[in-house]
């Protein structure tokens, strides 16, 4: 419980890291209709591709230096000396980031989807997809930013993007499934299954990586 509160406190004080990704997401969503002619039919066409990609981008921004600060000021060293279950701590940290950034972005996805397609059913189904995919992306980018710790976020992006591509393909399939009203539950379960594997494995891998960084 303590860790949750502390991470929350840290994020709250660092508004740039917390609100920043959400605002970037909103800005992309607002910019999208401006780049398309005002005929509404066209607007719907590319909207979901852009939605998933902007979720991907904002998650990348959110995790850009998730460990950097703790690495620079020595908190990570203290942590691995004193705490026995480092992976669990990382899992908690990722959860807080999802709670503070992923969930608001999912909510905004719902709102923008509603605003653009004017279809409540589709938008309601897009919401759980957004929730799950933001958590998956968050975990993947945490892996990337752990590897490229203190080497800049570009390296992290190069490393992580290929890992995130399958999720994007599933999401693309998901939107089509939702629009036709078939098989979307299957895809949702597929994402949920991959999420559970990722949640359990990423913290362990990341803890090994961070230990290697501190050597």
């Amino acid at each position: 419980m303590n860790v949750f509160y502390l991470e929350y406190l840290k994020l709250k004080k660092k508004t740039r890291h917390w609100i920043g990704p959400i605002i970037v997401f909103i800005l992309i969503m607002i910019a999208y209709p401006l780049t398309v002619e005002f005929l509404e039919k066209d607007l719907e066409k590319g909207f979901y591709s852009l939605l998933w990609i902007s979720i991907l981008l904002s998650m990348m921004l959110a995790t850009e230096d998730i460990f950097l600060e703790d690495y620079n000021d020595g908190t990570l060293e203290q942590t691995i000396i004193s705490i026995s279950s480092f992976p669990f701590l990382i899992a908690k940290k990722i959860f807080i980031y999802w709670f503070m950034i992923g969930i608001p972005i999912s909510l905004f996805s719902f709102l923008f989807s509603l605003g653009i397609t004017k279809n409540l059913n589709i938008s309601l189904l897009v919401f759980p997809f957004a929730m799950i995919c933001s958590y998956i992306f968050l975990n993947l980018f945490v892996f990337g930013s752990a590897l490229s710790l203190n080497k800049g976020s570009v390296l992290g992006a190069i490393i992580t993007m290929p890992l995130a591509l399958p999720v994007l393909i599933v999401l693309g399939k998901g939107v089509i499934a939702i629009q036709f009203g078939i098989n979307y539950l299957e895809l949702l379960l597929l994402l949920l299954g991959s999420l559970s594997i990722i949640i359990t494995s990423v913290p362990f891998i990341v803890s090994y990586i961070i230990k290697a960084h501190l050597e």
Binding site: K10, N72, D73, G74, T75, E77, I81, S84
Partner: peptide, 15 residues
């Protein structure tokens, strides 16, 4: 697991 350590980096949050 019961070591008290203080290094060059002081694990303080500036903000």
């Amino acid at each position: 697991n019961n070591i008290c350590y203080l290094g060059h980096k002081n694990a303080l949050k500036g903000y």
